Every structure is written in C-alpha cells, then in structure tokens.
Computed example of a mutant assay.
Amino acid sequence: MTSPANELMTAIQTRLTADAALVALIGPGGLSDRRVNRLDLPVVVVGSVETRDFSTATEAGAEIIFTLEAWSGEGRRAAEAIAEALCSLLDNTDLALSGRHLVSLRHRRTVSRREPKTTFFVAEASFRAVVE
C-alpha cells in the first residue's frame, strides 16, 4: 500500500486535470510536482507536504498538510485567480482514494507574493486533509 500522502496527491491531480476551467487557466501541462526552471507560466506546483499520525484507538489515520503553489508571470491577480480555482475544486470535496477513506479536505489559507529572484507572482494555497 502506498503512503496516504501519495494517494491523496494522485487523487488531487486527477481532480484538477479533469476540470476544464482550471486547464483553461493553466494549460494542459500546467500541473507539476516540482518547479522546473522554465518560463511557460502559469503553472500549479505541489509545494510542501507534511504527514502526521492521526490514528485513534481503533482506526489508523493520517493528517496531511500540503501547499499548492500557483505561479504566474501575469501578476498577483492571475496567481490568486488560479489559487481560488484550486480552492473551489478541493475545499470540502470528496475524493476517491485507493484503499483509504478521505475524512475531510479543507482549505486553510492562501498567501500571495512576488518572488524577488524571478519577479513572478506565486499564490500558495494551503490545505489540511484527514485520511483513514
């Protein structure tokens, strides 16, 4: 059995790439698990992923805190629009996991900034998931 974080990220990728409105914003190759030194923006990149034990006396569980980074060369507003689309697609949604059950998936916060080295804008949307 794979890790709960990997199962969750796979389900999230499936959900995001199936949404025509998001694909229209970022393009068909606009979702990645790492930021590549390239200029084909916008792009959504999986940022930090932290998994913690969240087991009870009767059930194995995991709490997963993760960030999706929306990068744009068009400005803060464009990066925030992508992050808003991510939140709409993922906040309080039900995703099918292989061999596990998603108890909850909630948006925690979004922070946007201009990245000084690149002058691109990034909006970081942070989420919390609980998986059994």
Rank of each mutant, 00 (worst) to 15 (best):
residue 55 S to C: 03
residue 91 D to N: 12
residue 116 P to Y: 00
residue 29 G to V: 03
residue 73 G to A: 11
residue 66 F to I: 08
residue 123 A to T: 02
residue 123 A to L: 00
residue 124 E to W: 01
residue 42 P to Q: 03
residue 44 V to K: 03
residue 60 A to V: 13
residue 74 E to K: 14
residue 62 A to L: 05
residue 8 L to T: 01
residue 53 D to W: 04
residue 7 E to I: 09
residue 88 S to L: 14
residue 40 D to R: 08
residue 112 S to G: 00
residue 120 F to S: 02
residue 13 Q to R: 13
residue 75 G to V: 06
residue 79 A to K: 01
residue 25 L to Y: 02
residue 10 T to N: 15
residue 18 A to F: 06
residue 98 S to E: 13
residue 31 L to C: 07
residue 107 H to F: 08
residue 70 A to K: 06
residue 44 V to D: 02
residue 106 R to A: 11
residue 101 H to Q: 12
residue 117 K to E: 14
residue 33 D to A: 13
residue 64 I to R: 05
residue 46 V to P: 06
residue 76 R to K: 12
residue 45 V to P: 00
residue 59 E to I: 15
residue 8 L to Y: 05
residue 31 L to D: 02
residue 81 A to I: 03
residue 125 A to Y: 02
residue 52 R to I: 09
residue 76 R to P: 05
residue 49 V to L: 07
residue 95 L to A: 03
residue 36 V to A: 13
residue 22 L to V: 05
residue 79 A to D: 02
residue 46 V to T: 13
residue 52 R to A: 15
residue 39 L to N: 14
residue 62 A to T: 11
residue 78 A to S: 12
residue 10 T to P: 05
residue 110 T to P: 02
residue 83 A to R: 00
residue 84 E to D: 13
residue 63 E to T: 12
residue 68 L to V: 02
residue 113 R to D: 08
residue 32 S to M: 15
residue 36 V to C: 04
residue 51 T to N: 04
residue 12 I to Y: 04
residue 75 G to M: 07
residue 55 S to N: 03
residue 28 P to E: 15
residue 114 R to N: 08
residue 124 E to M: 08
residue 38 R to Y: 09
residue 49 V to W: 12
residue 23 V to N: 01
residue 72 S to Q: 07
residue 51 T to D: 13
residue 46 V to C: 10
residue 126 S to Y: 04
residue 113 R to W: 02
residue 40 D to K: 08
residue 102 L to A: 11
residue 86 L to R: 06
residue 14 T to E: 05
residue 72 S to V: 06
residue 15 R to A: 14
residue 35 R to T: 11
residue 107 H to A: 09
residue 20 A to F: 13
residue 12 I to W: 05
residue 116 P to T: 07
residue 94 D to V: 14
residue 49 V to A: 09
residue 59 E to D: 14
residue 52 R to K: 12
residue 56 T to Q: 04
residue 119 T to C: 01
residue 32 S to Y: 10
residue 60 A to L: 12
residue 88 S to E: 11
residue 88 S to D: 15
residue 26 I to H: 02
residue 88 S to G: 12
residue 27 G to P: 01
residue 126 S to H: 13
residue 18 A to D: 11
residue 105 L to A: 07
residue 71 W to V: 09
residue 30 G to V: 07
residue 69 E to A: 15
residue 45 V to N: 00
residue 112 S to Y: 00
residue 82 I to M: 12
residue 82 I to H: 00
residue 76 R to V: 08
residue 53 D to C: 10
residue 99 G to M: 03
residue 52 R to T: 04
residue 39 L to Y: 06
residue 120 F to R: 07
residue 19 D to P: 00
residue 110 T to M: 08
residue 33 D to I: 15
residue 126 S to M: 12
residue 16 L to K: 06
residue 40 D to E: 15
residue 64 I to F: 06
residue 44 V to R: 02
residue 24 A to D: 05
residue 63 E to P: 12
